[in-house]
Design a protein around this nucleic acid. Structure first.
Lengths: 169, 169
DNA sequence: GCAATATACTAGGACATCCAAGGGTTTGAA
DNA sequence: TTCAAACCCTTGGATGTCCTAGTATATTGC
């Protein structure tokens, strides 16, 4: 897993697809496979950067979301929608963050079904520090060429809109 | 998770980053976050398509890899390297595929440390059928514009090369 | 006003990924 | 030749994701 392969395995797969008469879907297959691999690489880098804080990316995302919320708190279902993960994943993340003292659950003032997640002081501090580290250690050296960035962001936004993530023009 | 959000949450995050004075890394942050979300969407589609075969994407990838191998068999460490996943993940996938009768483990003829994975007849059949379904149900409707495809593949290949996945020019 | 439906969260289970550690096999250097 | 280092695979543990089902609270419709 550490040694570079002599050739791009995804380009090889694309050639295999073409060789088997699936030329019409070889390119999307390659694009999708490349997305998978790219995600895996990026996630690994992020996890390394967050490890010193005892955070995973899932937990960090929740902390970051809370730190941008006006009131510093959010209903769990809102967090689930914004992070676009299953509600049980939020439950899981909140369990661990709460155990670590970074967030607290509190009842919603008017809706008895809803639970609010709130940043603690320490959670707020950790969120700030983790963000600083991610910015300098991961995002600032993403490995994407500056000249490709806007294009990449647009292509992925088009994809996500088409997939029903959001409706904005 | 089903209802589209009124606005793109990643674009919002990008604006948050800029507003906090992290404008220099706002774009890569957005690109990376978008990769994560895109991967999640695509993986979900693939898993749905593979479910009727009792396969997951991880297992399918292994089957597909084997079906393209000349001899129909591969050493586990080779599969790990080509799929670019941890050896234990291969062990896990082979365990389940073997239990399902789609592959068999066999000892390497000359190296006692190595285990070969081999497709069974049924494994070969399932691999073919699953590939056909993925091609028609997922890859042929990827949601990426044809005009973006080459660009996307190139950007991701540049990234993966830079990340040390392969050394090919 | 009350029953039926919808919504919010959580518990339990299936899978996948990685890491750390352990046991067997090869390789290579003294 | 011998023994340490390198390599291969597996086991066990921690996390994350999703799904299904169950409990509790709100909302709706008759």
């Amino acid at each position: 897993m550490a040694t570079p392969l002599p050739r791009d395995p995804i380009a090889d797969a694309q050639r295999n697809w073409e060789r088997h008469g699936w030329g019409d879907v070889a390119a999307p297959m390659a694009a999708i496979t490349a997305i998978m691999r790219t995600q895996q690489i990026l996630l690994a880098r992020i996890e390394v950067a967050l490890k010193p804080f005892g955070l995973t990316f899932a937990r960090y995302e929740l902390l970051a979301l809370l730190s941008f919320a006006r009131s510093g708190s959010l209903p769990m279902n809102k967090a689930s929608a914004l992070l676009q993960v299953h509600p049980t994943s939020v439950t899981n993340a909140v369990d661990r963050l709460e155990k670590a003292g970074l967030v607290v659950r509190s009842p919603h003032p008017t809706d008895g079904r809803t639970t609010l997640i709130e940043l603690t002081t320490e959670g707020s501090t950790i969120a700030k520090r983790a963000t600083a580290v991610l910015n300098t250690e991961v995002f600032s050296q993403s490995g994407f060429a500056d000249s490709d960035m806007d294009q990449l962001i647009r292509i992925l936004a088009d994809f996500r809109r088409q997939a029903g993530d959001f409706s904005e023009e």
